[in-house]
């Protein structure tokens, strides 16, 4: 299957705008589940406002949140997909820039030292683009995640030691949630990375935080850990927006990788309640948009 770079560019543009406007159905269901269980008056009001905002955004065709985030594109390349690598990368970058200039979106991206904003949502290394491969024939999937800074500014890595075991991982996750309080715009998806190298561990935490509610860690031990943490996280009382109540998190997600015999890394990254995602799937039939 041959893919035209201009179609990728168009999709990269479209995906950014779509992600900022419509929340995926799994997140909407997540809100309903939390709202049904919330016992705190303020918490119920806060969730109600968030749910109303989702509706208003769709009715008025407006952005859910003013923070357009740092644009992240996750590309999954199936078999028999023909497009030049550098061409693909540049098409995504151009689409991201065009979304920003043409919509127009607020560019939230600056040079880290000069703090200069090019008003394109791009700069050195941004958009962040990850590449992966799948066995799906003639399929190219591009997922887009605008990652808000409120949640991203609360990211943690701890190189625990093996002697501290899984207890260190659990305690660290709980302490990060308490530390973050309302700053991550809870309810959040708490992403936990376990194992790997330091950088891989943080990346796993991000993957965990940005995958769909209801999806599972493929490793059975990792899945058991995410269930255990999800079961207690809302006992912490941080609540929606950190104003108290039972809606601290939609879920805790875990992703893991093998690690070194002397290492026990754990990382936490959170996705805020504006848990935005969009995706485009290229097949010989054309491009299909989803979440």
């Amino acid at each position: 299957m041959k893919i035209d770079a201009s179609h990728v560019e168009e999709a990269a543009k479209e995906l950014y705008i779509r992600a900022l406007k419509v929340l995926p159905p799994d997140i909407k269901r997540g809100f309903d589940t939390l709202a049904a269980k919330e016992s705190n008056v303020t918490g119920r009001a806060v969730l109600g406002t968030m749910i109303q905002n989702i509706e208003v955004a769709e009715q008025t065709d407006n952005l859910l949140c003013q923070d357009t985030g740092i644009p992240i594109y996750n590309v999954t390349i199936g078999t028999n997909v023909e497009i030049g690598g550098p061409e693909l990368r540049e098409a995504i970058r151009r689409g991201c820039e065009r979304a920003t200039r043409e919509y127009p979106l607020r560019s939230s991206v600056v040079h880290p030292l000069t703090r200069k904003n090019n008003h394109t949502s791009t700069g050195p290394g941004v958009p962040v683009i990850h590449y992966d491969f799948s066995a799906d024939a003639e399929t190219l999937i591009i997922e887009m995640v605008p990652k808000g800074s409120g949640s991203e500014n609360n990211s943690w890595l701890k190189m625990a030691v093996p002697a501290e075991g899984v207890d260190a991982i659990k305690a660290f996750v709980i302490d990060c949630i308490l530390d973050a309080g309302g700053r991550t715009c809870p309810p959040t998806i708490v992403g936990v990375g376990v194992g790997g190298t330091a950088d891989l561990c943080v990346h796993l935490a991000k993957q965990a935080a940005t995958r769909a509610l209801g999806s599972q860690c493929q490793d059975p031990e990792g899945h058991a850990l995410e269930q255990e943490l999800s079961a207690v996280v809302n006992e912490l009382g941080v609540g929606a927006q950190g104003l108290g109540g039972d809606s601290t998190a939609f879920a805790v997600h875990v992703e893991l990788a093998a690690t070194h015999i002397t290492m026990n890394p754990v990382a936490v990254n959170m996705q805020c309640h504006s848990a935005r995602r969009s995706s485009a799937t290229f097949t010989p039939k054309g491009v299909e948009y989803g979440f």
Binding site: T49, M50, N53, V56, L63, L64, C65
Partner: peptide
């Protein structure tokens, strides 16, 4: 005064 973060579509109205 606390506003609900991330509810900009509503705030804009």
């Amino acid at each position: 005064l606390a506003i609900i973060g991330g509810t900009a579509a509503l705030e804009t109205t």
